[in-house]
């Protein structure tokens, strides 16, 4: 009885805020994420390296171009490309090279893979970045508008968005070429153009084709998130306090709706990397994707491995960035805690 009386306000005793530890928590979180990233990359490298050797076909056939050669020449080729070594040794040699930034030598071009990729990196990077910007700018703008101003216009926009989501990238690309390049003649039909503004101009249609479905997806998503926040209880509190609608939207709706949108939009943008393969092929952009397709067809193993590793790495890095951003946006997600 007296013990209870002595501490009537036990529920009010504040937990000490972990002020000094927050820096440590961030460092720990980043370290964990980087370790996870490395582990994923390692597993991915095993899969990428192994699956190519499980695939039918033999690099030797491509090296000899089907010509019959002397056993001596074949032995020499095998020695040069280490084709006789056991798989694990080939893997370790390759991994060692990758760690030093050396992705090996292309079987087809007989040039260092790194140099081959460098010349092709620009158009892929430009394509994905432009598409990502389109997804964020148009997707969010349409979604926020439709969420905040319900009505006939919003409903129509959302209906169009739903239909657009169902259009595959290669169909969208062909339609865009037909309308804007062939009929209207506003944009070039294919090619990456010369570096600078010309490259951006050449990339408008490809980026649009790549972004279209994702724009629609992000628009729908952000519209739904905004609607949900608008009808949430805490927004009702804000309304009951007589706050201006503009203030409520800015302070209580947008930030809260950003959390679910960010997660999915981030994954969608990472998914653009995969979609870029198709678009590059359609528009003949000469980037990673197109190179990947031709290298797979030609069994140019070092190139395929390198490109796959770059794709996997960028996907994982993007994901890590999203996780970090998410924990900045939502105070309930503690950095120190491991994600489960």
């Amino acid at each position: 009885m007296s013990a209870q009386d002595a501490a009537p306000a036990s529920t009010t005793t504040p937990k000490p805020a972990p002020r000094g530890e927050s820096g440590k928590a961030v460092a720990k979180f980043v370290a964990q994420r980087v370790a996870g990233l490395l582990a994923t990359l390692f597993v991915a490298s095993l899969v990428v390296f192994g699956s190519l050797y499980l695939a039918p076909g033999n690099p030797l056939t491509f090296l000899t171009h089907g010509r019959s050669m002397t056993p001596d020449a074949i032995t020499q080729l095998k020695a040069q490309y280490h084709l006789d070594d056991p798989l694990w040794m080939q893997y370790l040699r390759w991994l060692g090279g990758v760690l030093h930034g050396d992705f090996g030598t292309s079987i087809i071009y007989n040039q260092p893979v790194g140099a081959l990729l460098e010349t092709r990196m620009q158009s892929t990077l430009l394509l994905v970045v432009m598409a990502a910007v389109m997804v964020l700018v148009f997707g969010l703008a349409i979604g926020v508008f439709a969420g905040l101003k319900p009505g006939f216009l919003s409903r129509s926009v959302m209906a169009v968005a739903t239909a657009t989501m169902a259009v595959p990238t290669f169909v969208a690309a062909v339609i865009l070429i037909l309308v804007f390049a062939v009929n209207l003649g506003w944009f070039p039909v294919f090619g990456a153009g010369s570096p600078g503004l010309d490259a951006v101009y050449h990339m408008v249609l490809p980026a649009l084709g790549l972004a279209l479905a994702s724009v629609a997806f992000v628009a729908r998503l952000s519209q739904a998130a905004i609607r949900q926040e608008l009808s949430s209880d805490h927004v009702q509190t804000a309304i009951s306090r007589g706050l201006a609608r503009r203030f409520i939207v800015r302070r209580h709706v947008i930030r809260n709706a950003a959390m679910p949108v960010l997660t999915v939009a981030g994954l969608t943008i990472a998914g653009l990397i995969a979609g870029s393969v198709v678009v590059e092929q359609v528009f003949q952009l000469g980037g990673f994707g197109q190179f990947l397709v031709s290298s797979v067809q030609q069994k140019d193993f070092p190139v395929v491995q390198a490109i796959c590793m770059v794709y996997v790495a960028s996907f994982i890095v993007l994901n890590t960035v999203i996780d970090l951003l998410y924990s900045l946006l939502d105070p309930r997600v503690s950095l120190g805690r491991t994600a489960s």
Partner: peptide, 22 residues
């Protein structure tokens, strides 16, 4: 807005749902 802001104040049942978590 003035009426809601200065004349009446509401206390809701579920304080957790009625405060912005972020």
């Amino acid at each position: 807005r003035k009426y809601r802001a200065g004349d009446v104040s509401m206390i809701f049942q579920d304080a957790r749902a009625h405060t912005n978590p972020v």
